[in-house]
Amino acid sequence: MVERRPLLLFIQHAVLIFGAAVFVFPIYLAFIASTHTAREVNSGLPLLPGGQMFDNYATVLGEGLSTAGAPPIGLMLMNSTIMALAITLGKLVISLLSSFAIVYFKFPFRVLAFWTIFITLMLPVEVRILPTYEVVAQLGMLNSYAGLSVPLIASATATFLFRQFFMTVPDELTEAARIDGAGPMKFFRDILVPLSRTNIAALFVILFIYGWNQYLWPLLVTTDESYYTIVMGIQRMVNAGEETPQWHLIMTTAILALVPPVVVILGMQRLFVRGLVEVEK
């Protein structure tokens, strides 16, 4: 790799640039489409931005696509954000606490508890969707934020990751905290959670995107438009019945739907990149 061979360097860069282009191109197309009028988009998509950008975004954010049977984008974006945040925070809190219990406390059936959690790794929402729906319906949580998020909150993956991390925390640290007069919850709050910061940041990103991308579940539990999420909304715009899909506005919505996950990644990135660079004992 230290050698400087111009041809090799050229090929390497060409491959990398090609790879990047393959990934970026669809997003670029979506952006381009969001800056043109419907007619321009439907008569063969241009490759350069058009002049409709502000109109399109204003339309989508302000009026919504009433014809597509979806509420204004703003509400759907907010619904999605609330759902994704509730799922993410819920998963983090529950998995932090449950792995704390599994690693630091001795109680009957501790191993059984761990394996039960572990086995649920094999049961994503899609597999248990009917019984879960039944439970949520019986509890009267259809068409509510709780119904959107609660069933997705239990997380075996995060519990498992935190368990692995907690087991690497030296016992002496626990003992030092005990001598310093920190009870279990104080130890958890003052020592364990701050030490898990990097893991929390990384999981936050992963879980937020997981929550944001939920499609099937929100589709099932919401019939009230005011609880629609953005991912559902896009889908409904595409299947707009008799009408021609308004691709320019759909793409505008898609670009807007990209923004919150990107913000989360950028915000958290600094935390976990720093965590990975500064190795802590």
């Binding site: 030296p170 002496e172 640290l173 003992e175 030092a176 905290a177 020592i191």
Partner: peptide, 9 residues
């Protein structure tokens, strides 16, 4: 303690 057990953060 042998490994000092300082709170790293």
């Amino acid at each position: 303690f042998q490994n000092y057990a300082l709170y790293p953060h």
